[in-house]
Design a protein around this nucleic acid. Structure first.
Ligand SMILES: NC(=O)c1ccc[n+]([C@@H]2O[C@H](COP(=O)([O-])OP(=O)(O)OC[C@H]3O[C@@H](n4cnc5c(N)ncnc54)[C@H](O)[C@@H]3O)[C@@H](O)[C@H]2O)c1
Ligand SMILES: NC(=O)c1ccc[n+]([C@@H]2O[C@H](COP(=O)([O-])OP(=O)(O)OC[C@H]3O[C@@H](n4cnc5c(N)ncnc54)[C@H](O)[C@@H]3O)[C@@H](O)[C@H]2O)c1
Lengths: 234, 234
DNA sequence: CGGGCTTTGTGCACACGTTCACAAACCGCC
DNA sequence: GGCGGTTTGTGAACGTGTGCACAAAGCCCG
C-alpha cells in the first residue's frame, strides 16, 4: 500500500481527537493488542463508533472489513499525520509556579516535545535548575529558538506580560504558541495560538453546577449535552 | 427590569465564551470603562461582533441600541448566569508537580474557586504545606467534600490513578470534575467531566506545524481555520 | 420634535460536525 | 468456492455553530 501523501485537509474536530486515539492505541499496543475495531476504540475513547471510523477515514483506508484496524499501523499513520514522526522542541517563557511544573513534567519529553529552553525575566530565577533545565534570561530566547530550531513556544508568564512574551516568541521565529495566561493574544496571520485557561474550565463547570441546582429546585431535569469534544457529561 | 430567571438553555459554544467576555469586562471596568459595544468587546475577545451579540442575547436584552452594553451590569449578568454569584470550593487530588502549582496559584481564589482541600496518597506529601494549604491524606477526601460542600474536584494524579481518583470523588459527592491526567474517565451519568490535556494541545499545534511545512514545500498555501473557539490562527 | 447616526437583536443561509444506516469488503470455515 | 458472520467506509439526514444583513430602537442635536 502506498504511504498515502497527506493531501486532504482534516477537520479540526478530528485533529483534536486523533491524539486521544493515539494515546489509547499506544496503550493497547503496550498490552499486546494487535487489532482493534472502531467499536472497541470508540468505547475506550468515549465516543461514537461511526465518528471513529469517519475520523480514521481522513487518514486513508487503513482498516480491514470484518477485522478492524491494525494497532501498530494506525499508530504509525496517526503519528505521521500529526507530524509526530519527529520531535518538536518547545521553549517555555516564564519559570514561575506553572513554568516549573511544566519543565519538570516528564510527559512532554516522552510525547515528543522536549523542553529546549526555559526563560524568565527575573534575575533571581535565572540559572536556577528545574527539572534538569537551567533557566536562561529572557534575552537568550531568540538564540535558543534559532539554535534548537524551535517552532513551538509556551507562555507561562503573568497575564500582563503575556502579549510581550508572544511578541518576542514571534520575533524569534516561533510559529505556534500555547498560552496559559488568561488573556487574548494578538499575533500576526500565520501564527497558530491555542489557549489553555483553567479559570474558564472551572467556570464552565460552574455553569453546569448552577444549572443542575436550578433544575433540581424548580424546573424539570435535563440531560446535559456534550460540549464540543473537550468535556463530557456521562 | 426583572432579574431574568435563567430559563433558556445556553449553547455550549456560548458558555465557553462567556468567561472570556467576563474577564475582559472586569478588566475594562477596572480601567473605568462604563459602556462597551459588541464591536469593541468582539475586538478585545478576538471574535466576530455578531457572535458577541448573539451570545449576550441568550442572557436577555441587556444592551441599549445606539449605545452598547453597560459594563457593570453585563458583568453582573454573566456572573449570575455562570453561577459565579457565589464561591465554588474545589478539592484537588494529587499534590505533585501540577497539584502544587495549582494549589499555589492565587488565580483560583480570586476567581471564586477557593481550594478547599488538597489530598495525596503519599504519606511523605501529607502534612506538607503548599500555597497555604496543608496536604491531607486521601482518606479524608469524603470528609473534606462533605464539610466544605465541595461539588468540583480536580484530578492531578498520575494517569493510572486517575480513574480511582474519579471514583472516589464521585463517591464523596462531587458532581463536576476537571481532569488533568491524559486518560478517558468513566463516570456515572449526571457527572460533568472536562479534560485538560497538554499533550493533546501540543499535538494539535504539531499538526499545524507539520501542515505548514508540507504546504510550503510542495503544495499551495492555505489559511488555517479557527478551531472551535479554543485556539486560533490569526 | 424630527432627522440622522449608531448599535442592538435576530431571521436566514451557510458551514461544520455528528450520527444513522447500509452496501461493500473481507475472514474463516466447511 | 461459496456462505455466514463481522466490520469498514461513506452517503444522507440531522443538529449545532457562525456570520451577514437589516429592521427596530435609542441617542443626540439642532
Ligand atoms: N500556576 C497555576 O497553576 C496556573 C493555573 C492557571 C493559570 N495560570 C497562569 O499561568 C501564568 C503563570 O502562572 P504562575 O503561577 O506560574 O505565575 P508566577 O508568578 O509563579 O510565574 C510567572 C513567571 O513569569 C516571569 N515573568 C514575568 N514577566 C515575564 C516576561 N515578560 N518574560 C518572561 N518571564 C516573565 C516571572 O519572573 C515569574 O517567574 C499566569 O498567567 C497564570 O494566570 C497558572
Ligand atoms: N506537571 C505538569 O506540568 C503536567 C502537565 C500535563 C499533564 N500533567 C498530568 O497531571 C498529572 C499529575 O502530574 P504531576 O507532574 O503533578 O505528577 P506527579 O507525579 O508529580 O504527582 C502526582 C501526585 O499524585 C499522587 N498520587 C498518586 N496516586 C494517587 C491517588 N490514587 N490518589 C491521590 N494522589 C495520588 C502522588 O503521590 C503524587 O504526589 C499527571 O497525570 C500528568 O500526566 C502534568
Amino acid at each position: 500500500m502506498p504511504p498515502h501523501r497527506s493531501r486532504r485537509r482534516i477537520p479540526e474536530a478530528t485533529v483534536a481527537r486523533l491524539p486521544v486515539y493515539l494515546q489509547i492505541l499506544v496503550d493497547q499496543a503496550g498490552e499486546g493488542v494487535e487489532n482493534i475495531s472502531s467499536e472497541g476504540l470508540a468505547e475506550l475513547a468515549g465516543v461514537n463508533a461511526a465518528k471513529v471510523r469517519k475520523d480514521l477515514s481522513y487518514l486513508g483506508s487503513y482498516g480491514t472489513r470484518g477485522v478492524g484496524y491494525e494497532v501498530d499501523y494506525l499508530v504509525y499513520q496517526i503519528r505521521r499525520e500529526l507530524g509526530l514522526d519527529h520531535d518538536w522542541p518547545v521553549v517555555i517563557v516564564g519559570a514561575g509556579n506553572l513554568g516549573q511544573a511544566l519543565a519538570g513534567y516528564g510527559g512532554f519529553n516522552d510525547r515528543g516535545f522536549p523542553v529546549a529552553g526555559l526563560v524568565d525575566i527575573d534575575d533571581d530565577k535565572v540559572d536556577t535548575v528545574v527539572g534538569g533545565i537551567r533557566v536562561r534570561p529572557l534575552d537568550e530566547l531568540a538564540q535558543i529558538v534559532a539554535a534548537r530550531n524551535v517552532s513551538i513556544g509556551v507562555i507561562a508568564t503573568p497575564p500582563p506580560a503575556a502579549q510581550d512574551a508572544a511578541d518576542r516568541l514571534v520575533k524569534a521565529g516561533v510559529t505556534s504558541i500555547l498560552n496559559f495566561a488568561p488573556v487574548v493574544l494578538s499575533v500576526p496571520v500565520g501564527i497558530t495560538v491555542r489557549k489553555v485557561d483553567l479559570a474558564v474550565e472551572l467556570q464552565i463547570l460552574s455553569y453546569h453546577e448552577q444549572r443542575r441546582a436550578a433544575a433540581s429546585q424548580g424546573g424539570q431535569l435535563h440531560a446535559v449535552s456534550t460540549d464540543r469534544g473537550r468535556g463530557a457529561t456521562a
